[in-house]
């Protein structure tokens, strides 16, 4: 169902900027990249094994 709003007040540029900033977006992207990285689960175990083999 379509809703029609007349003369709706829009937030100012300052309000919008206060609400959202680039650092939050960047942090979200970096977190997702980290979570989606398949090496995430293998990095520390494989590093430990390599170190043990070296020793």
């Amino acid at each position: 169902m379509l809703k029609i709003l007349l003369n709706r007040k829009e937030p100012s540029i300052e309000q919008v900027r206060k609400h959202q900033n680039f650092n939050k977006i960047l942090a979200a992207v970096q977190y997702q990249q980290k979570v989606n990285n398949p090496w995430r689960y293998w990095y520390y175990p494989s590093l430990t094994i390599c170190l043990l083999l070296l020793v």
Binding site: M1, L2, K3, I4, L5, L6, N7, R8
Partner: peptide, 12 residues
């Protein structure tokens, strides 16, 4: 979210 159209009365 709901599909909305925001209109200005002057434009209307």
């Amino acid at each position: 979210a709901q599909r909305t159209v925001s209109l200005d009365k002057v434009v209307l």
